[in-house]
Amino acid sequence: MYNGQKNTKIKLLPKPAVIALTASVTAALWVGIWAIAAFAIGIELILPSPLSVLKKLFEIIKEKDFFITVLFSLLRVLGGFLIGAFFGLLGAFLSYFLLPVKIFFAPLIKVVRATPVASFILIAVLWIPSTFVPVFISFLMVFPIVYGNVLTGLENTDILLIEASKMYRFSVRKKTMFLYLPSVLPYFASACITALGLAWKSSVAAEVLSVTKKSIGEKLFLSNLYLESAELLAWTVVVILLSIGMESLIKIIAIQIKKITRRRYERDKS
């Protein structure tokens, strides 16, 4: 029904553009606050300006060992992540089927979750070569998350489907492939997203405390040692960017996995 008002159409920006715009404005705002704070303090050693950090960032990128340093740090965290994810998955399956294994792991998981990561790093430094400390710490961060999530997924496997697989005499391989793995896949994907971010941060912390050769952590440590605040922040920016990159990558992978499995999971509950 015509109500006398002019029919006006408001052109809205597409959602990704709005998100990008909002993010850019917010980032600019924070960089502005940072610049003002740096100007107010006026001492580069305490708080370098965004411009000097940016300059330093370009300098360190041009250094010949930059990519090697980044690559080695990434390999360490990925190594720990993959080992943690594999053993988390395996441990969860064993715990689901064998109660003694679940009982055995329970205190370990609780202790790992409750203990500060710095304690583990300092203990690990005494036990293993510094190159492997970040790998071990990544593993330690990833394992309980993947283990816990996958175990929850297994415990939530549809009992009716378990019974059906029993009735149709599924082999262990068939049960794993067609029942349990698809059931835990969303739980595993979520765990990986959470665990990777944590593993990355913990791994860098481990590199700092164990002064791992050819690592971002070592660069952070040396920058701090030589009071190179701009370089310290430049490397921190590298860590943040890599963290965002890795998180985005794993999110894309997880979304693709979920896309493939979503329609398969959304059961008709009617």
Partner: peptide, 9 residues
């Protein structure tokens, strides 16, 4: 079974 119990995936 009374329920279809099809594997949703």
């Amino acid at each position: 079974f009374q329920e279809d119990r099809l594997f949703p995936w």
